[in-house]
């Protein structure tokens, strides 16, 4: 498909090559045009366009009321976001780095997540919390955390993590339109590395649906975010040893697409769960448990996890901390020979 006059007008057709950054930016532009209830706010998102550039141009295009800078206060950002959502807006709150979200954790867990439930549906919180997460940029302890597990463990929240530009756009638009609070976690390591055709205009990807990134027959690799390209390289390595690897990109962690996962796992009989977060208590444990509970008789080998280590995210040793293709490939092999 080729882009037909991508610069002009509301309804666009065709695709354009974009980085994930650009795709996220495009999603917000599309929705802000579509729906004047959508507002974007956070630290440095206005004039500067965000420390990574994800909100570039929004302040210019939509003005101070629709895209604005906030004081340095995650608690304020998120609490105010909840308030805006209650009042009928569609707030997109940006938290500069997921590592900084904790002062606002209370507003997410106690308020946003429980609003619909505690009010019997009278009050709802259709807020999107966008935040770059994960390592790979030499950010050390406080610019690299992959803490999605805290949010997966909070009923009432949805957790979405794209791995491709097209999915980033489609999932973000769907998240904005979703009636529930969504944690939209952006894998910063591939903000610029992920580059692909992205449909122009209103492109949506359904939440709660995984994607088969690669078909295979011998072993299933479950992954999300920046780990997807790592797993693709690992699958290439495994192919050299004659292993045909199927890669499932989860895309949404909560609600989880169990069906696609179980179908794949039952087909191959072997599974490796890859996540860069610290191993203990990570979301990969949940995936392993689901497989053990619902597909145990199909398992030809152990359910292997390849994860980050149970230490704070290190600066100098980042390259050893994060799962890389060789480590994932070793994990794949372990499902055959253990």
């Amino acid at each position: 498909m080729t882009a037909t006059n991508p610069q002009a007008g509301e309804s666009k057709t065709g695709t354009k090559v974009m980085t994930m950054l650009e795709a996220i930016n495009d999603a917000m532009k599309v929705e802000m045009r579509n729906d004047d209830r959508v507002v974007v706010f956070g630290e440095d998102v206005g004039k500067k366009g965000g420390v990574f550039g994800t909100t570039m141009g929004l302040h210019e295009q939509f003005g101070e009321n629709r895209c604005f800078d906030t004081p340095l206060s995650e608690c304020g950002i998120l609490g105010a976001g909840v308030g805006m959502a209650l009042y009928g807006m569609r707030p997109i709150a940006e938290i500069q780095f997921l590592d900084f979200i904790y002062p606002g954790f209370d507003q997410i867990v106690s308020e946003a997540a429980k609003m619909r439930y505690r009010s019997g549906g009278e009050y709802t919180c259709p807020m999107v919390i966008r935040s770059p997460y994960g390592g790979g940029i030499r950010g050390g302890h406080y610019h690299s955390q992959s803490s999605e597990a805290y949010f997966c463990h909070t009923p009432g929240l949805k957790v979405v993590i794209p791995a491709t530009p097209a999915d980033a756009k489609g999932l973000l638009i769907s998240s904005i339109r979703d009636e529930d609070p969504v944690m939209f976690l952006e894998p910063k390591a591939i903000y610029r590395h992920a580059k692909d055709e992205v449909p122009l205009g209103e492109h949506t990807v359904e939440l709660g649906k995984a994607r088969i990134a690669r078909e295979g027959a011998d072993v299933t690799v479950l992954c999300y975010g920046a780990m997807v390209p790592v797993c693709e390289k690992a699958a290439d390595l495994a192919a050299e040893d004659g292993r045909s690897v199927e890669i499932v990109d989860l895309r949404t962690l909560v609600p989880l697409d169990e069906r696609t996962i179980l179908e794949s796992v039952k087909k191959t009989g072997r599974v490796v769960v890859v996540y860069e977060a610290p191993k203990t208590g990570g979301f990969g444990g949940e995936l392993s448990a689901i497989i053990a509970e619902k597909a145990i008789e199909y398992m030809e080998g152990p359910i292997v996890r390849v994860a980050g280590f149970d230490t704070p995210f290190p600066y100098s040793l980042e390259h050893l901390y994060m799962p890389d293709p060789k480590r994932v490939a070793a994990g794949i092999e372990k499902t055959f020979v253990w």
Partner: peptide, 28 residues
């Protein structure tokens, strides 16, 4: 114990070689 186990796991991988290729850039 679990950290000792993880240390050993990484040690073995590093011995086999190739693990930990340079990743990361400096956009910060």
């Amino acid at each position: 114990q679990h950290l000792k186990d993880q240390k050993k796991y990484l040690h073995d991988l590093v011995q086999q070689g190739g693990v930990g290729a340079e990743i990361g850039h400096f956009p910060l």
